[in-house]
Each structure stands twice: as structure tokens, then as C-alpha cells.
Amino acid sequence: MVPLYMAFLVGGTLCLIGQLIMDLTKPEITPGHILVGYISAGAILSGLGLYKPLVELGGAGATVPLSGFGHLLTEGVIKGVGEKGLLGAFSGGLEAAAAGIAAAIIFGYITAVLFNPKG
């Protein structure tokens, strides 16, 4: 298992990069842009084989940031391609990420039913 301080360092660094992007580049960058950028970057790095070493190094520090979600999608796709060929390229990602996506939608909906926006 990965030591906690490594998760802290790797996760903190990934978030720090996001903060620098927000503060030092165009002011039009919104949280939505950051999320899209991280999931895409994670997927690409994973495709190049660069994200897996980061996960081995930082554990949750690499999987909890949204780039880890992109990595999960790519890993799923690559696994799918290995097992089913072309079909796997389409089915692999959703299979791998199913729990996270479903949880976000279900908890999102339930929260909306139970709570009101406080502002």
C-alpha cells in the first residue's frame, strides 16, 4: 500500500497545478474548464503509459484527482480493446467508470430532492 504522505504529496501537487492554471492564465477559466482539462489530460497521459507510474507512486493521490478518472476510462478502454477489439473501445470506458458516474448522478439527484440551495 502507498504511504499516506505520498498520497498527500502527489494529490497536493496535482491540485497545485490546477490552482496555478486558474490564477496565472486567462481569467475566463472556470471550474468546468479545469474538470474537462484534467479528465482529458489524465486520459491522454494514461494512453501514453505515463499515468500508471504516478498511481503506483501516489496511490489515491493520483486516482482521486479527476485526471485519475480519465486514467480509469483509458485503462478500461484499453482492457476492453484487448478483450473485445473494436467493441471494447466503446464499452470499456463506461464499464470501468460505471460506479463513479452512477454514484455521482444518484447522489446528485437524491441531494437535490433532500436539500435546498442555501446560497
Binding site: 498520497a7 498527500f8 497536493g12 491540485c15 497545485l16 490546477g18 490552482q19 489515491a60 493521490g61
Partner: peptide, 17 residues
């Protein structure tokens, strides 16, 4: 901002770990 982001993000990842 950077210190806050590093510490908060790091702690969330630690919780995950």
C-alpha cells in the same frame, strides 16, 4: 491560493487513501 490548494487537495487524497 497555492498553499491552500496543495494542502486541501492533498488532504482529500489522503482521506481517499
Amino acid at each position: 491560493h497555492s498553499v491552500w490548494a496543495f494542502v486541501a487537495g492533498g488532504l482529500i487524497c489522503v482521506l481517499g487513501q
